[in-house]
Nucleic acid binder design. Structure first.
Lengths: 366, 366
DNA sequence: AATTGGTTCTGAACCGTTACGGTCAGTCCA
DNA sequence: TGGACTGACCGTAACGGTTCAGAACCAATT
């Protein structure tokens, strides 16, 4: 027996086998297939393992051999901290985590520095698959993920041909909301949206920029608004759209300010997220504008704070979306699984939408 | 951006080397040490890799060889939904994520089924270290983590001898709060606390149970209250303490109801978390009790909602705590690092604490 | 006596990569 | 002209497991 505690070389399966005078296979079986060896021997193996401080089979070595990492990677191009601050992202994360937990899979948050284009972290992640959430279509990290030979599911954001996807029908959902505003009489509206591309562009958005946005969800929502308002004769080219790179309440407020300064006559602010809408509400309050009497404000997502604020919005099942993404990914072995899941949304009437204030601002039908 | 379904795994570093007629080392160097080969050869290697669809070195094999996984494991025994819903936990998570991101490390959420005692997931996680947050001292998952030969940092919750730790001085912090209430004249108080052990026990807490709680933080906070009130002659054995397993606002409300039903004469409800306190506020409102005139309510943590509610509480730097835990773990190679970090807390006066209502309820000093 | 079946354990082949210690030809310099 | 140095590349040995096709043994059946 080796008494040399000098080199505290951690015990391995092989050293344990040597100590016991059995084969490595047997030790492996003691851990993984108890039925393959006698209870007595197994007891001895585990006993000796304890004595030698062997912590059990090394997870990485096992992963290499079995080609299973037991974890799902999650790619978010935003700062990781973003995911913990944005309620919609958080709901998604929770749903995804629940799905992973249910399947006994870990959830590996891939570290991404949005500043640098360092894709190495994607290549370094030992995972069995990726979920990609909220990244632009042309994100290099996304390309790195797709180059990896593992299944991938995209949630909402990047729009990639041939990749499994879960999401909602953003375009139709916001069109429904827009139609409601149209029915109320709104024709002169403004729009606040989240960032459209990887580059910061805080300010007004040209039609061209809106149509070529690489954040697919935002593009779809703007398109949905175009659909609805164009259908009733509004010249969409003249509708002011203000973009903000940072997604925060204060961003929403400043965007609303910028828009209202430029066009004080808009009767409604349509926001592509609840967070922005909450900011718009704050700015309206600051200006002494009553909502909805003086100004209609709408959001998108259906987060808890929007509910508390009575916001008129579209509710989407964020938690369910995360869960669906996880399940879809974990079912990748099944060829009969759906390749795309579109979840339902729900219009939330709320209390921040009303007909335009003055008669002249109200549109009279034919 | 069309993509064919990729489930093939043909190319390896070795096959690539064979194709090129160079050694595996050279291919490896092409990826990892560009300076070790001529630019021309490197170009050819990468070119051929692209042609063969070689996605670059396999992360798992690399991890095995380098003994680095590039990820930090996070163990939370609570339901995941707890972690994603509780603002304090969320702040911690965000801080930890920031630290990991800053170091280019992934964050691996270990899946834990609180129902079963399945520790396998801990053994399966390919990580370079663990952060353990908010688990009871006797949690089997914790034991599994400690058996792994990787550095571990504990945040707040499990109290383990000899393991690196970051936290606050819960006992002293709540003692300071208690002294404030004592100064206001409160002597007849009730306490609402979070779960004390792994077993559900919704209801009153015996002194013994309080002292043997395996959730160390709760134990410390109760002890801090004992310190303060015993010092002024209050018989702590008679102070009602109500425990709730689930940590939610409605739990806080029901706990407050239970306590007030049993002892309507308490002048203050001291809660060991803001969430519980917010529930207590709700219950007080439901009963028509004015806070703080009719009832004093205090919390702990300093979450945003508490701030909005004007709650009298103790603020702790949750984000900083997460960040510190991450940094401590990632600095494990440095023998001169601190082994324990205690962060500062701050008493938040708030507006939910006032002297007891009636003269008879107020205590007159000597 | 031969066959069958079951249990228990073993040997050797991988899994895909990187660390380490070379070799070898060419260059520099006194 | 010879020795030291350099740049470019290679061979081998891990890294720590899992897996599969048997081997050895024994009891029961034909």
């Amino acid at each position: 027996m080796a008494r040399s505690t000098h080199v505290r070389r951690p015990a391995t399966l092989a050293s344990l086998a040597a100590e016991l005078g059995v084969s490595r296979t047997t030790v492996s079986n003691a851990y993984n297939r108890p039925d393959q060896l006698s209870p007595e021997l197994r007891r001895r193996v585990l006993e000796t393992a304890r004595r030698l401080g062997y912590p059990g089979p090394d997870p990485v070595a096992r992963s290499l051999r079995t080609r299973k990492a037991g974890a799902v990677g999650l790619l978010l191009t935003e700062n990781l901290s973003y995911a913990f601050r944005d309620p919609a992202a958080l709901g998604f994360l929770e749903g995804l985590a629940l799905a992973c937990e249910g399947a006994g899979q870990g959830l590996h948050l891939v570290p991404v520095n949005p500043e640098r284009e360092d894709v190495a972290a994607v290549h370094r992640a030992g995972v069995d698959g990726f979920v990609v959430y909220s990244v632009p279509d042309d994100d290099p990290h996304l390309a790195a993920v797709l180059s990896r030979p593992v299944p991938t599911v995209v949630a909402d954001q990047p729009h990639v041909e041939g990749v499994d996807r879960v999401g909602i029908d953003d375009r139709a959902a916001i069109t429904a909301l827009a139609k409601r505003l149209i029915a109320l009489g709104h024709r002169r509206v403004g729009v606040l949206c989240m960032r459209l591309t990887r580059d910061r562009n805080d300010g007004f958005v040209s039609t061209d920029r809106a149509e070529t946005a690489t954040f697919h969800v935002q593009r779809a929502r703007l398109a949905g608004l175009t659909d609805a308002f164009s259908a009733v004769g509004v010249d969409w080219g003249r509708v002011p759209v203000v973009e903000r790179f940072d997604h925060s309440i204060s961003s929403g407020a400043s965007a609303a300010a910028q828009l209202l300064d430029a066009d004080p006559h808009v009767t409604a602010l349509i926001c592509t997220s609840d967070i922005l809408a909450l900011g718009a509400l704050a700015e309206a309050r600051r200006r002494g504008l009553r909502v909805p009497q003086d100004l209609t404000v709408t959001g998108f997502d259906g987060i808890a704070d929007a509910d508390r604020a009575g916001l008129t919005t579209v509710r989407q099942p964020v938690l369910e979306k995360g869960r669906a993404a996880g399940k879809l990914l974990l079912a990748s072995v099944d060829p009969t699984r759906p390749r795309e899941i579109t979840l339902n949304t729900e219009l939330v009437p709320g209390a921040t939408a009303a007909p335009p204030r003055t008669a002249e601002e109200r549109w009279f039908g034919p």
